[in-house]
């Protein structure tokens, strides 16, 4: 567990090396194992993943908190799992 800009990160999923569809498939599976309102950070190094991971998670009602480039070819996607009371 860590914090990022005041947001508590409950789980980190490092999927560097993965390409689609496994980028968003693995992100969805990781989120399924989490509780509503928890925050997942996904680390990717495949540029299209910065589009398809947030989009696929957003379409299921999750909240995309940030998508940030953190290295030459590395991005962090922070997402909060959907919840009716959030």
């Amino acid at each position: 567990m860590s914090e990022k800009s005041g947001i508590k990160i409950d789980k980190v999923l490092d999927i560097k090396g993965e390409i689609c569809p496994y980028t968003f498939v693995k992100s969805k599976l990781a989120l399924e194992e989490m509780e509503e309102g928890e925050v997942l950070k996904v680390i990717v190094d495949y540029p299209p993943a910065t589009e398809n991971v947030p989009r696929s998670l957003e379409k299921e009602g999750n909240e995309i908190i940030s998508v940030e480039k953190v290295g030459e070819k590395m991005w962090e996607i922070v997402v909060r799992k959907k919840g009716d009371n959030i």
Binding site: C20, P21, F24, P47, P48, T50, E51, N52, P54, R55, S56, K59, V67, W75
Partner: peptide, 23 residues
């Protein structure tokens, strides 16, 4: 857009603009 469970065709086929990187 709502019919696709894979987000790639939305971008490839002109239904949506990329937000973060060029595709």
């Amino acid at each position: 857009e709502k019919d696709f469970t894979c987000p790639n065709p939305e971008l490839c086929l002109g239904l949506r603009e990329p937000k973060y990187v060029e595709v």
